[in-house]
Write a protein that binds this DNA or RNA. Structure first.
Lengths: 248, 248
DNA sequence: CGCGACCTTGATCCCGGTCAAGAACTGTGG
DNA sequence: CCACAGTTCTTGACCGGGATCAAGGTCGCG
């Protein structure tokens, strides 16, 4: 293979970086072949909108790389993020024509799309896909409920710490390094996106980030690059005790 | 049939009041018969806890009658309701041993329980069940995301109006009457439960209920019996415009 | 009647929102 | 290299909605 553009280099499902975590995780070789027949890749630049709420959406798919957000907006402009889509997460809803939320790429983004109609048919004939999608949907429901606690009952400082913990944890499971006992990662979002996620204003986000920095809970390099010297301390600040055994 | 206790009178799935909305909705007669083999009814009094978060849960099931809540609690006692289970809603998570949340009966409650192990096996062999469960889970995810907007961005008054609208709508679809243009229903929860749902204190709930009453948005008879003279007005107060065409 | 659960209302406080200014960083063109 | 503009982030001053603290009211039940 002479050229190495992403679309080409990931056309083979077996070599796909999200092969074992996405909706296709349980498929066997035969099933993958069928999926390959209805799939195509789409790329988006940071800031681009993938679909607008209410628009017809003729595909579903998986985030291959990058980060996208699901956002709901009220008529007067108040917005609330309701989902954060990281690599391997599923986009779209089988059995529904219109998108329920705005989907926006917050970094450069690649989606592995399946044409919706054939995908829906496939779901009926391929239990492995439906089973995996059910499992992923249940996980998302748990995540959404976790988030309801954050939104409804946590203070601004706890909200920020919770978000940092989630991003750190999700990054750490797949990507990132733990030099000694520290945890280093980049926030994939602006302060404004954080505020939309947390039900705060961007000023409050900024103030609480400064406060966590001042108190030594995090170390900031620039505005996005974060070092967490002590993860359990961060979890304490988030109001979540018990680190769930991660990082042993 | 001489005696008419609920357990007996609903043992026949065909006659079940939630037959067409629950997880068994798509099952045919054969499949129902298998389900009948692993099902049993359990009743709970108002206030009783069905399971505690973290406890082992050896069944899944459907709410047949009554109302239950899913609640999350922080170590310091702050609580957030993360789900409201009405008749036909599914309880429990296949593929997981422990309950993730406290499940509490807020009224007298009857659950149609399926032993978990056999149910899980059934899900693999009976696509109708897995398909229906996926659909229901997707609907719950949408509801949870809707609720995230309420928790994150709405004012206390809008939160109350949103809750009333949801209860009114869910009741209206199956149970309730619309004499002329009005809508009448009973709140299946205390002020405290409302506050747990909405991320407020019970004092704020009480004040805003009084304010909505004073402003003629609702009419109260006692503390639970509610008349909504103009549903679109209620939706306006909730910050949700467009009544979605319901009540034509 | 008296007790306990549930609800309402008032007085006060404070966290986070709002409004406003300016700093830091990025990219663009001269 | 600097000047400039645009975007993103920080910080300060002030305000207000909802939390907190505290009484008191209503209802149902033994």
């Amino acid at each position: 293979m002479l050229h190495s553009d992403l679309a080409h280099s990931t056309q083979d499902c077996e070599a796909c970086p999200i092969r074992h975590r996405a909706v296709c995780a349980r498929c066997d070789a035969d099933e993958l072949q069928v999926l390959e027949g209805i799939k195509y890749y789409r790329s988006f630049e940071a800031g681009q909108t993938v679909v607008w709420a209410g628009d017809r959406m003729d595909f579903v798919g998986s985030v291959v790389s990058g980060v996208a957000t699901l956002t709901q907006t009220m008529e007067d402009g108040r917005t609330q993020m309701v989902g954060l889509l990281l690599p391997s997460d599923f986009v779209g809803r089988p059995g529904r024509d219109g998108a329920a939320y705005d989907v926006v790429a917050t970094t450069n983004l690649v989606i592995c799309c399946f044409r919706k109609k054939p995908f829906e048919q496939l779901m009926e004939t391929t239990p492995h896909i439906a089973q995996r999608l059910l499992q992923m949907t249940l996980d998302e429901l748990d995540a959404a409920r976790e988030w309801m606690l954050v939104l409804g009952r946590k203070t601004a400082r706890e909200k920020i710490a919770s978000l940092l913990a989630i991003v750190a944890r999700r990054d750490a499971t797949l990507n990132l390094l733990t030099p000694n006992g520290k945890l280093v990662f980049d926030l994939p979002m602006t302060r404004e996106a954080m505020s939309d996620y947390l039900g705060l204003t961007l000023e409050t986000v900024s103030r609480q980030m400064s406060a966590l920095k001042r108190d030594g809970v995090i170390v900031l390099e620039g505005t996005r690059h974060i070092t967490v010297p002590d993860f359990s301390r961060l979890l304490e600040e988030a109001g979540d005790d018990s680190d769930g055994g991660m990082l042993s």
